[in-house]
Each structure stands twice: as structure tokens, then as C-alpha cells.
Simulated assay, not measured.
Amino acid sequence: MTSGSAFVLSARRRLIQIIALALVISGCTSFLLVSILMMSTGNIAGFAPYLGIIALGLGGSLATLALLERFVLWQAVIPLAVGIDGAVVSSVFLLPEQTLVALPFLLVPLVLICLGRHRPSTLVIVGGSIVVAAFLASLAPRSQVDRVVIGDALPLISGIGMVTLLVIIWLLSDRLLAISDQAVAMADNRAAEAEAARRQAEEAQRTIEQQYAEQKQLLDLVSVLETPVITIGEGVLLAPVVGRLDSRRAEQLTQRLLNAVHTHRANAVIIDIAGVPTVDTMVAQLLIRTAQSLRLLGSRVVLTGITAETAMTLSHLGVSLNEMSTVRDPQEALLVLGVRP
């Protein structure tokens, strides 16, 4: 993704390129017209200086176009600025009466060099422009106005006005460019902060997903440890139940037993509840539903581990365990099933 600073720099390059191309077109047109006048009038000596002035600006524009893609911006602008300044100075010496018309063109190099955002070169151009403007203003012809003679004061007034204009335009362009650079830098900082926040969010999400996966693995491991299914004989599975049996554990036990019966083609399942602290109506109903599910797969269910207290509780509750056989321990269950462990 292109940063804001790169975009602004590219826009400045395009602006300077357009200005240089416009000057090249104007210079070529002027050079062609002056050449035609030179040949048509035969006044080669009179028109040759004009061709030199045009050549200065044209050469500086072409040099800037050639340097724009290979050098930093302020370096590429120097030939164009020098060419324009040289053309202005030469035109003033050639036509002193046009001094006040030519001097404003000194603003063009100043604006162009400000686009390069290189303060030393900008200060050099500003200082040079002030000196050149003051010097050229001093060469302007004297003029008089009715009742008031201002010929002697005209160069000073022109020079002061030009210097003021140069400073104001320089300060204005420099400040505007500084503000734009600051705005772009702030936008880039916000974009960088947003990108950093996005990466942190993605990293946090990956961490959460990893923790979730690890937690799920632990829960699966706990589930396996809570409801183990062991093969203790040919076609016989043992499921020791330890701890309180609730609906969640009963569902896990039923699912694991169904999968194990289907996988091992077991014809008998021994459910040992010796480790269950309390057997009430709910626990008995859960065991009955598990036995019914296993019988649908063609497997007998034997319940072991019933203590005297559990038997008395079930008797008082009136719970019938007709869905399964009951014996005292897994060894006796194997004898009942006629299986050697």
C-alpha cells in the first residue's frame, strides 16, 4: 500500500513535470517564431539574443525533465530554476525598460524549489532572488510623473515590493507545504497505529483460538478419563463409572459405549457403579436409558458395584432395573456371561 508521503511526493513530481513541459512547449514555439522572423527579416544580430534567452529557459526545462526520475526533487528542479533566472536577467539587460515586467518571473523558481522541501536550497534561492531582484530593479530606467519626480525612488520602491512579494510567497508556500506534510505524517501514523492494532487483534484471536483448542483437548481428555471403556474379554467391555453421574456424563458414557460396541462388535457391556457416591432416581433413569440404547445394538448390559445402601435406596424409590442384569462385581459378571477374562 502506497503511503501518503509517497503520494504527495509523486504529486509534486507530476506538478513540476507539467510546468516543465509547458515551458518546453512555450520555448519551442517562441524559438520557432523568432527563427522565422530572423530568416524573414534578415536581422540575425538583432534576434540572436532573444534566441539565447529562450534557449536558457528551454535547456533548463529539458534538463529538469531528464532528472526528475533519477534525482531527488530539489536537485531535479535546480536546472529549471537556473534557466528561468538566467532568462530573466538576460531579458532585463537586453530590454531594461521591461524590468518591472520581467522581475515577477523570479517567483517561478522560488515556488518550484519550495516544492522540493529542501530548506538549504530554498534559502539559497530566496536570498539569490532577493539580490538579483534588487540589482535588476536598480537598473530600471528612471521615469517621471506630473508634478512629482519618482524616477530616483522607483528602483527602491520596486525592489522593496519585489522583496516583500518574494518573502510572502515563500513563507506561504513553505507553510502550506509544511502543513500538508504534517497532515500526511499524521495520516500515516494513524494508519500505522490501525495496522498495529489489527495485527494485535489478529494475534489475540490466534492466541484465543489456540487456547480454545488446548482447552478442548483437555476437556476431551477429561471426558475420556471420566468415562473410560476397557476391553476385558472377547466381546466384553467394562465401563467403570467414578464420581457423580449427571446428564452430561451420562450422555458421554452412552456415546462412548455405543461407539465402542459398534467398533469392537461387543455383545456384552459391564457398567460398574461402585465409584458412584449416590444413586438416586435420576441416576437410575440415566443408567436405564444407556442400557436401552446398548440393547438396540444387540449388546447385553450387566450392572455391577451396587452396594447395600444403593440397593435399599433403589428399593425404597421403587426403581426397576429390568433393562439390565445386576451382579456384585465385574468378576462375577464375567462368570455370568461365561467369558474368561
Score class of each variant (00 low, 15 high):
L257Q: 02
R256C: 03
L286S: 04
R249K: 15
D246E: 13
L245P: 00
T278D: 08
V241S: 09
L258E: 09
V276T: 04
N267V: 10
R244A: 12
R244L: 08
I273A: 10
T290C: 14
R289G: 00
Q292S: 05
L287P: 04
Q285S: 15
L287N: 09
N267C: 09
N259L: 13
H262I: 07
G275T: 09
L257S: 02
R265E: 05
A266H: 04
Q285A: 14
A274P: 04
I270H: 12
V279Y: 07
H264D: 04
S247N: 13
M282L: 12
E251T: 14
Q292K: 06
L286N: 09
D246V: 06
A260Y: 07
L253C: 08
D246Q: 03
D246M: 05
L253D: 09
T263P: 00
A284W: 00
R265T: 11
H262G: 09
S247C: 02
V242C: 08
L253G: 06
A266S: 15
L258Y: 10
L257N: 06
I273K: 05
V276C: 05
P277M: 13
L245D: 03
T254N: 15
I271Q: 06
H262A: 12
I288F: 07
T263D: 13
D246T: 05
T263L: 13
T278M: 14
T254P: 06
A291L: 03
R244Y: 10
T281V: 00
V279K: 04
L257D: 02
R248A: 14
A250V: 07
I270D: 10
Q292P: 00
Q252D: 12
A268W: 11
R248H: 10
L287D: 05
R248D: 13
L253M: 14
D280P: 08
T254F: 01
G275P: 03
L245H: 07
A284T: 00
T290I: 11
A250L: 11
R265D: 07
L253Y: 09
I271W: 04
V283M: 02
N259F: 08
H264N: 08
A250D: 11
Q255K: 14
T290R: 02
A268T: 12
R289I: 00
M282A: 12
A268P: 11
D280R: 04
T290V: 11
Q252Y: 07
N267R: 15
S293N: 12
H264A: 10
E251A: 15
D272W: 12
A260V: 00
A250W: 12
V283Q: 03
L286T: 01
R248G: 08
H264C: 04
R265S: 13
L257V: 01
L287K: 03
I270C: 13
I270M: 14
N259W: 09
L287W: 10
D280Y: 06
L257I: 03
V279G: 06
L257R: 03
E251M: 09
H262F: 01
M282F: 03
H264E: 08
L253S: 10
A250C: 10
Q285F: 02
H262V: 02
L286W: 10
A274R: 14
A250E: 12
V276H: 02
L257K: 01
T281P: 00
D280M: 05
M282V: 12
R289M: 03
V283E: 01
